[in-house]
Amino acid sequence: MSRTSSPASRPERGTPLLAVRDLRTVFHTPRGAVRAVDGVDLDLAAGETLGIVGESGSGKSVLGRTVMGLVTSGPTTTITGSVTLDGSDVHALSSRARRQLWGPRIAMVFQDPMTSLNPVKHVGTHLTEPLRLHLGLGRRAAAERAVELLTQVGIPEPARRAGQYPHELSGGMRQRVVIAMALACDPDLLIADEPTTALDVTVQKQILDLLGDLTGRLGMAMVLISHDLGAIAGRTDRVGVMYGGRVVESTATTALFAAPRHPYAEALLASIPQLTDPPHTVLRAIEGSPPDLVAPPQGCRFRPRCPYADQQCHEEDPVLVDLGQPGVPHRAACHHPLPVPARVDA
């Protein structure tokens, strides 16, 4: 059953790996139905990296967990649509079969390394558990592989660190351990859910670079979830901008940075502080707050905060349409997409 960690078993780069179709995750709460993910489509090829950007509460973390199958339908949760990973529908599988995906096929890096490691377990144990479970390694072999993994994520003195408890490591080191944990069984797809939000600014870049480096080197596909467009720039092939449980713009990362078409993406880009700004430039924030997912605004969900909104935005809910050039899809859900600035070809 268990796959070896040879690269030969990985789907060839470029073949479709993940297909998400009209995915909806609804939590039934006393306040009403919270539509955390409300009709999302995603495609990811093997070895490709996709950024998901949005504010807190835009549904991006729930999206990640639903794609992984960590959130499933139950008494308080309804999931519709489909998540197909390498040919199998994650939500149609038995829980046993789904557990066999977690680790060797799909793995997750969590947001807060302070809380995502068990305080009473040695660092090494976090790594040997999945190795022994999925790859059937013996105690010795698993321990050796754990040290290799710690080396791979750039932890100095890996053998000594493996015998320590999580609280004896710094935040950045712990996040490296969390990454090593996700990499343990050599997954085809890594979902990194805000992997740097809880870290010091100086460490954030190191962790992001590590993730970018590892996915490139191991040929692993990655979904990088972040509220920070800056974290995604240069590290992902494509990007999806989420707002109110939906993807409102999706295109190549370079295309988004060059010319955002959705006003929300434009506002997000404008809120990144630039080094070239003169000193004391006031940071640009997006006025208002994210939509209430129990009772989203009528029409376009961004309308209450959008400087370009008009009567049509109030009445009609915009759908994603392709506005891009042939061969370069650029999809946005907006009645009044921003114009592409005239290109000055060199």
């Binding site: 977690w102 997750m108 809380t115 377990k121 558990e129 999945p130 996700a182």
Partner: peptide, 22 residues
Amino acid sequence: NEDFILAARAKGMHPVRILVGD
């Protein structure tokens, strides 16, 4: 409800093993 339990689940561990072991 702790994150490390979710992380243990995400490793594909059996729920009973998580209860006892984590």
